[in-house]
Design a protein around this nucleic acid. Sequence first.
DNA 1: AGGGCATATTTTGCATTCATTTTTTCCCAT
DNA 2: ATGGGAAAAAATGAATGCAAAATATGCCCT
Lengths: 255, 255
Amino acid sequence: MILQTIVTPMKSTIPESGVPIAQIADNGTPELSLHGEILSRLRDYVVEGNIPDGARVPERQLCELFGVSRTPLREALKVLAAEGLIELLPNRGARVRELGKRDLEELFDVIGGLESLAGRLACETITDEEIAEIERLHYEMYGYYLHRDMHNYFQVNQRIHERIVAASRNETLRTIYANLAGRIRRVRYSANFARKRQRWAEAMREHEAILDALRRRAGSELSDTLFQHLRNKRTAAVEHLGRTSEGLTTESVDG
Amino acid sequence: MILQTIVTPMKSTIPESGVPIAQIADNGTPELSLHGEILSRLRDYVVEGNIPDGARVPERQLCELFGVSRTPLREALKVLAAEGLIELLPNRGARVRELGKRDLEELFDVIGGLESLAGRLACETITDEEIAEIERLHYEMYGYYLHRDMHNYFQVNQRIHERIVAASRNETLRTIYANLAGRIRRVRYSANFARKRQRWAEAMREHEAILDALRRRAGSELSDTLFQHLRNKRTAAVEHLGRTSEGLTTESVDG
DNA sequence: AGGGCATATTTTGCATTCATTTTTTCCCAT
DNA sequence: ATGGGAAAAAATGAATGCAAAATATGCCCT
């Protein structure tokens, strides 16, 4: 699990120059330590799907690839396991964690719950400028929708959701959200591409409702709308997963 | 960026559902690897407040204490940093992360959001037996309330909340919840002890409302009630923190 | 006596090494 | 051939070693 490692206000005896290294799922700040660097790169490497699901994560080869010894790499593996991206099997190394149908459902529900919470909190403190920025993104996304530009639509869509979470002014929430969102990024992406036109239009309407509730700062309403939006995404993604056994999972999901 | 794909020698079958070791804040399943063992023990050690907040985590001493070399201990430190329990400063070791007022507020809000979600989900699938078990705990807790037995009240209280989360049938949620709950356990505990009688009575009434909504499987209502319950806990805890001092200090919590 | 600076000690980060365990290979028996 | 199993090879888990950075110590000077 991922959580944050932000430097909090420190005691007077401690010099101020400390910079935390174990940035989790964060922006691309220059990593000072080798471990942090490797952690970021390895996470991206896995998220981007360079290793087949369920396949072994080859320690030795990755060491060569990244040009480091096993020690920092293994530390990174432990962290990724804690994040839920991979799993560690005793004496048998790390495997890319497969996302089964149930895992996906769970993740979407939790993400939905978090976005729902974020929406409620955001309404309490969001500024007009932030709303304006989200509006801007919304119309940008609408443009991509009209042009059937799935890739950019997806990117902007993600950023809108991130903005809402950021507007909650809750760094803890933001960090956890980023972690979970990272886990299902691939599924969301491919599910998006496989979208039927109808669902896509539906999603656009939902986004309009979201924006509308946000403008009115209707916390409770926004909360519900976001949760329902994610529920619909969940349905679409899980359906997609069911149709394609490609890449993301094998079966092995019993009821 | 790295685009190379690593080819792993994959067996045709993916059998032997091994047990992942890096369980986060999980139950006390027997840990097989030294790393997992150390991770658990170190987490407990920190959570229990054996190291003052903001203080340095003495790598070497802990190695002696646990009787292991630095390698598995450092791996555990990386994971704990990812969990947010400690922070890692480059070349300057690990420090116990201090929970400031803002951190607490954030954590309570997120936990509230998660419990709220859990309640909603639980109502969809909870069985009569599970409800009966929670009822049993509720009345047990009520007994401790009447006897002003704060310690046991706290324990059972925690278990009730855990049961509700468990009833959501969402392992992902359960894991994240356990992690966050662990982070603030100490605060919750001491805040509980400092409770004014009025707040305590209030909490009991809230719990009754929770149980009531659960019996009727009124998801939306339960969701709201839980969130509000946590908001009130947040207020109490933050107030308590303000009174005791900035940040929590060594307050050994036994049991 | 106290502050500043150079040196010694400790600590950290990472690489390397070592002991097991697992996986593969290859030989033999059926 | 084919399946079983022993031996070889490789991978894993953990300890140790080593260079660099940080902290502590002590010396010198005012």
